[in-house]
Design a protein around this nucleic acid. Structure first.
Lengths: 168, 168
DNA sequence: TCGTCTTTGCGACTGAGTCTCAGTTGCGTA
DNA sequence: TACGCAACTGAGACTCAGTCGCAAAGACGA
């Protein structure tokens, strides 16, 4: 897959710029991450590597994820759970998430108008934004059809319950 | 403060509705929470109670916070750090947060237009929203004047670094 | 006073993430 | 090809927020 090779190249450049090396472990992780087309958790990644009998330690996974986030190849996101999720950055399209509290599915969306409005708010507050993180919790179409109800609409409760429900 | 008494009353109603009791510990926590006019962490609350030599255990603090979140009196928020923050709900004004990654200060804002746009997005995706959570990370006006620079603007990096910087 | 039910504190536990440290690897230089 | 050194790794101990189980305490109606 040429795309993955390109990402590996970018990571190597990033590392080289600060006198760091692209090791076998790091390459293997980047390969795995860019082959995964969805949000993942650090431990999930560790587990997958183990399954493939690619020996990599917990510490290395976390260290590499940190480097990848710093390099801009990977993004750390909150999806309503109480720990981080990661996703690889494709191109440079920023997006936000709709998280279904019934089935846990995540729908991505990108809305330039919404982004624009946020910039206006920042300007009004004299705030210089660098990044934002928006999750909308609720119930997706197919769950709604199945009769899943949002716990109590308009209620803040849903944060708590959403998070609970999503837990393993 | 009559306001606090009213909140305590509301909490009592909520508890009574499910056969639960308003105990001294719970009352003390509600008092403390509604006397705190800002985002706080669970352990911070526990610490404050200890300082006032109000004896309350960790478990009770967490249990009560959960009840308060369920009752809608308290809201759980993510502020870019890797654990929860809480805030008491005043009236029913929903708001979002601008979080300064340099000094850690938090600016609240409410923007009906932004909320409206989110509803439109949900409608387009056939998603039934119950709650959302938006943080914009960046640098506040006074930090910017002091020469604080956003680590690398337009870069996702800032999530990681923001969170790092904010850590105790 | 008894019985039942809820609540509490204690302390052990969990799980994500971090740190330390000794051993290993990668790589430029000779 | 060997050397030296910095960067890297794995193992496991550690941290810290949050949860759980359980026995004791408290509330309260009969």
């Amino acid at each position: 897959m040429p795309t993955i090779e390109r990402e590996i190249g970018r990571f190597q450049d990033f590392l080289a710029r600060q006198g760091q090396k692209l090791t076998q472990e790091r390459t293997a992780l980047v390969r795995e991450i860019f082959a995964t087309h969805y949000h993942f958790e650090a431990d999930e990644l560790l587990f997958k590597m183990k399954q493939k009998s690619t020996k990599i330690s917990r510490a290395t996974v976390y260290r590499t994820l940190e480097l990848l986030v710093k390099s801009g190849l990977v993004r750390r996101v909150h999806l309503g759970e109480d720990h981080y999720h990661y996703e690889h950055v494709r191109g440079d399209s920023h997006h936000d998430h709709l998280v279904c509290t019934a089935c846990g599915s995540v729908i991505e969306f990108n809305d330039p108008e919404l982004e624009q409005r946020q910039l206006e708010i920042c300007a009004r507050k004299k705030f210089t934004p660098t990044f934002h993180n928006l999750q909308i919790l609720g119930v997706c179409d197919s769950c709604r059809r199945k009769g899943e109800q949002p716990a109590s609409p308009d209620r803040v409760t849903s944060i708590g319950e959403g998070a609970m429900r999503l837990r393993k």
